[in-house]
């Protein structure tokens, strides 16, 4: 496990109750908490990358975490170019990965 969520029982801030929500990530079910961003739900499962870069096709995920870098873009319910670090997940969201090959560059 790399990136991971802190279990509530280990958290010094003593979390109260929160509501789980279910989404799908690349067609597979994933569970998060109401109010979590899409990036946080994916990273809580240990996922670090979900996009391929335009030129070299290299894996990318979250980098700046505050909406500046646009490395974490995903498709949400068919809507492209959504920053996963900024958008909070809604129950039932279907998250797909986007690859932005440039014309004549993709192999």
């Amino acid at each position: 496990m790399v990136s991971q969520a802190l279990l509530p029982e280990n958290d010094p801030i003593r979390p109260g109750g929160s509501t789980p929500i279910g989404i799908t990530v690349d067609g597979k079910p994933a569970t998060g908490l109401t109010g979590q961003t899409i990036a946080a739900i994916m990273m809580a499962e240990g996922r670090l990358s979900w996009r391929r870069s335009s030129v070299a096709g290299e894996p990318r995920g979250l980098f700046c975490g505050i909406g500046i870098c646009f490395d974490c873009l995903v498709v949400v319910n068919g809507e492209r170019d959504v920053r996963a670090c900024q958008r909070r997940a809604v129950s039932g969201d279907a998250i797909e990965f986007q690859h932005d090959e440039l014309p004549g560059v993709a192999g």
Binding site: A5, L6, A40, A44, L62
Partner: peptide, 11 residues
């Protein structure tokens, strides 16, 4: 991610 999500970016 730590303050707003309680997610650690790595172990």
């Amino acid at each position: 991610l730590a303050k707003g999500e309680r997610v650690a970016v790595g172990s």
